[in-house]
Amino acid sequence: MSDGGRHWTEQELDDALDRLNADVRVSDERLGEAKDRMLAEIDGGGRRRPRVVGVAASMLVVVGLVVALLVAQTENPLGPASAEAVATLELAAIEAEDTPVGPGRFRYVATHAWHLREIGRTAYLAETVTEVWAPAEYEREWEMRRSETGRRVWVLGSEAEALAAGLTVNPPGPAGLPVKARCGDFAAVLTGQPPCTTPGQWQAPTREFIAGLPREPGPLLDRLRADAPDHGRGDSQLLIYAADALRGGLLPADVRTPLFRALAMLQGLQITDNAANLDGRRGTAVGIDDGRVRQEIIIDPVTGVFVGERQVLTTESESGVPAGTVTGFTAVEIAVVDETGVRPN
């Protein structure tokens, strides 16, 4: 094997990707069968429903509306949030407040994120710590440090099994060097764009993005629904987007309060764990099960503080990770410090 001992070029990788499993075929007969299955579904399922609404509406508008509402509800079998879940979110909404960051000081946000890595027939959670120092003056320089701690929890198989199978247990992680950027625009540093130009999003809310968010629960829920891509996971996807923004630790209290009230309107929301433990940080888990994974946000039941978020498998995964396994979580710590790069005591 002449190229066995060195790294591949991009071209060699592309060439191998082009060739791998390139000889697959499909017959017109198989395509026809698949199309028939789709057409049968269209004829038998979804198309009939609007027709019923249409007939009712043509007879009597009011009856038509009632039927339309019933149809809308039956499309989501999960039902409204439970009273306990609503109460927990209301506590978080009422208690939301921000410690003021005085001039020249910094808000410090540390997130301990554990992500699932499935390699071969094994899987483990690995910890990444991201620390951000956000200055009181938004357009001054921010700092971010990210590092993999090397802490691992095996959820399927073991490290010994993975190594024996020749799997890459520790793929190269991001460097722990500090990144500095005005406006917290770390993406601009990486892409070479001018600072303070990357548009905000739920995963990385900028000052402008936050300013543009509605401060009322209803409109804020509409906005969340408009922004979150829908992949057939029901309202779970909205909870994921809200958790993305919350775990960044930089949403101000006047957004967090209506956001928690907006989440209380999600379908299928339940208290899913009264004593969730995020590597030592504890709280009440409020979550939605999409039939495969349960997305949760964790609230301190006494102070109402957002502790973090978590994902739990609710059915055994195809690769054999058992139901009930935590497949990811993030714990958030927020403080105010005097200097950038310095951790709170």
Partner: peptide, 8 residues
């Protein structure tokens, strides 16, 4: 990068 280097 993982594929190009893991290959070796």
């Amino acid at each position: 990068s993982a594929l190009r280097t893991a290959e070796a």
